[in-house]
Amino acid sequence: MKNISLIKEYSKGVWKNNPVFIQVLGMCPTLAVTVSAINGIAMALATTFVLLFSSIIISSIRKIIPAQVRIAAYILIIATFVTIVDLVMKAQFPELSKALGPYIPLIVVNCLILGRQEAFSSKNGVLRSALDALGMGTGFLIALFSLGGIREILGNRTILGLQIMPDFFEPWLIMILPAGAFLTLGLLMAYLNSLAIKTKKKEKALLVSKFIIAKNKFKIEAEI
């Protein structure tokens, strides 16, 4: 029983509570860096790293942080890990670090991270918080990769640097411009919403039909 709920702790962030599509958190990096799929992956991994380690630290010292200054304490912890990520990226992946520019330091004010600390890590144990952070990170990765992938395919004919669209396909310049980010995310969210509405309707129809069958059965039994 306990194992099942642990898995749930991880999987809820991946799809059902996806940070970008459902909770609409962390929009700035989502829109800004998804010019290409690789940028999206790098951003999501950096964010997941910060989220995971700040969740572990905060959940393990949650009982000794005074409630009045908790937000300041969280921000300090988050900013420390962001500094680590930034320095590591500058040293190891200078090109990626240049492409992401000021959006790596801006992870500090990503509302996704602060939101998870406030809503989850400050109330739960280390293991659960770590799983929650990993799940949210995975959800963030899915969102950023799909957005970056779509924009890269349509705007640049490539995915992860490999050309997959034929040469006669005219790249849509708008997709790699800021406006394309807003439009793609808006359409993607609308599509996911319409899927959710459809499944809800199906469930409703299924329930109604079950009810009718049960009612008829009852009627027949009564007649007999």
């Binding site: 411009l177 406006a179 808006g186 359409l187």
Partner: peptide
């Protein structure tokens, strides 16, 4: 339209606004 209500339509309007600012 139903699926566009809330965040999606806001994002699309922002996209059109961004195009105007271009």
């Amino acid at each position: 339209p139903e699926p566009f209500k809330g965040a999606p339509i806001t994002l699309i309007v922002a996209g059109i606004l961004a195009m105007a600012f271009m």
